[in-house]
Nucleic acid binder design. Structure first.
Ligand SMILES: [Mn+2]
Ligand SMILES: [Mn+2]
Ligand SMILES: [Zn+2]
Ligand SMILES: [Zn+2]
Lengths: 125, 125
DNA sequence: AACCTTATTGCAACTATGTTGCAATAATAG
DNA sequence: CTATTATTGCAACATAGTTGCAATAAGGTT
């Protein structure tokens, strides 16, 4: 159903994502907000913000969930499908707006793809 | 250290991977072998077989670990870096030997990338 | 074949991420 | 201000994966 009521918790989380271009892992968010709200609340708010296409999510290399701001999405056109880049040195993750084209695969119908790139970010290079 | 002793358990797991070209999730393997060996043993054998470059691993869309046979790898040249394809209908996962080129990203040093493709497999198309 | 060394295994307990049910709380419409 | 119900906190649960340690068994040596 998405976010209906602009509660204090929703605002707090939205502000955090508006203050950075980086992706934030749920683990990091729980740690950062543990004195202010319950982890269940965090999971649920993130879910609702993704439904509203204000955030999008993906899995990092260790399988934990990350979220980042959406830019060109609306709730009925929610296709923030771009690669994500994780720095092996500082751990920072961000969205990269490059086009990775998946070639046709014989006899198979490609629907979408997740690309997770590892390397060194601008600050760690 | 890799596999040193060819135990019954190691042989069982190797046979399973040699009977198919498909990837197998650890979850599936634990289920299939639960009457024959402990899950800890399974995790540890898979780890050692990966060290030996007989298997390689990656994460599926839900974050669980999958393993598949290596083809052109040796323990000091273990770069089974190809995309993996997960069928949204039957759940089957396999290695696809296509080249997905990651374009250069300004100011960033790309080291490697994981590509997970979703779609319908030959049997489900 | 019996023996020794130590890699491997099973088990139980633990960690971590994520989910669920339900009662209490608080946004907001009227 | 009041009523409705979306949202929250909490505790309990689910599942994937890890760890320490004692028991077992490969496989080399005598
Ligand atoms: Mn993104
Ligand atoms: Mn593969
Ligand atoms: Zn960095
Ligand atoms: Zn299929």
């Amino acid at each position: 159903m998405g976010v209906v009521r602009k509660t204090k918790s929703v605002q707090t989380i939205l502000e955090i994502f508006n203050q950075t271009e980086e992706a934030i892992s749920v683990v990091e968010l729980i740690e950062r907000l543990k004195s202010q709200m319950n982890k269940t609340t965090i999971y649920r708010i993130l879910e609702r913000l993704e439904e509203d296409a204000l955030l999008h999510s993906f899995l990092g290399h260790d399988g934990v969930k990350w979220y980042a701001k959406c830019h060109e999405c609306s709730s009925h056109d929610h296709h923030d499908v771009h690669p994500h880049f994780q720095c092996v040195d500082c751990g920072k993750v961000d969205c990269v707006e490059i086009d990775v084209t998946i070639p046709k695969i014989p006899n198979r119908q490609v629907m979408n793809s997740n690309v997770l790139i590892r390397g060194r970010c601008e600050e760690c290079v």
